[in-house]
Computed example of a mutant assay.
Amino acid sequence: MSTTKSIFSPASGQSPFEQGQAERQIALEYLAEAWNEAEEDGLETSALAHASLFAALATFVRMHGDEATADLVAQLPDRIRTGEYNLERILQ
């Protein structure tokens, strides 16, 4: 993996939220690299998306339980509709 952590490494004195945000950004970069490699190997984007959702939800259920995961998923429609997951949206 060739991702460098230096530009995302938490600086001294950062809040736990900012540190967590930096770690999530690094994790997203790892996932993007794996996703790109899978596409290059011929896997369909929809298959990757379904597998990723399954893996994420199964992890949340294991870590937080069925109810907490269901509550999180129940919030997704509004978050999707407001563009939170739209990578092409323009922030003003």
Rank of each mutant, 00 (worst) to 15 (best):
R81T: 06
E84K: 10
S6R: 09
G65W: 10
L91Y: 11
A74E: 06
Q19M: 04
F8H: 05
D78T: 15
R89K: 15
D66C: 04
G65Y: 07
T3Q: 02
A38C: 04
E37Q: 15
M1Y: 09
A34Y: 02
H50A: 11
V73Q: 03
L57E: 01
H64L: 07
L53W: 09
E37A: 11
D71E: 14
A58Q: 13
F60Q: 13
A32S: 15
A11C: 01
D66Y: 12
M1E: 12
D66E: 13
D71C: 03
A58G: 13
Q19D: 04
I90F: 07
A11R: 08
L53N: 08
R24E: 09
A51S: 12
T69L: 01
G42L: 00
G42T: 01
E40D: 10
F17T: 13
P77W: 02
F8A: 05
L28S: 15
T59N: 11
F17W: 08
E37I: 14
I90V: 14
R79H: 08
E88G: 12
P10Q: 04
Q21C: 01
S52Q: 07
F60S: 14
F54A: 12
A27G: 06
A38L: 03
L48H: 03
A11K: 10
R62P: 03
F17Y: 12
G13R: 03
G65P: 00
W35Q: 09
E37N: 11
A11N: 07
A70L: 07
Q92K: 10
M1P: 05
L72W: 07
A38W: 03
A74M: 01
L72G: 02
A38M: 04
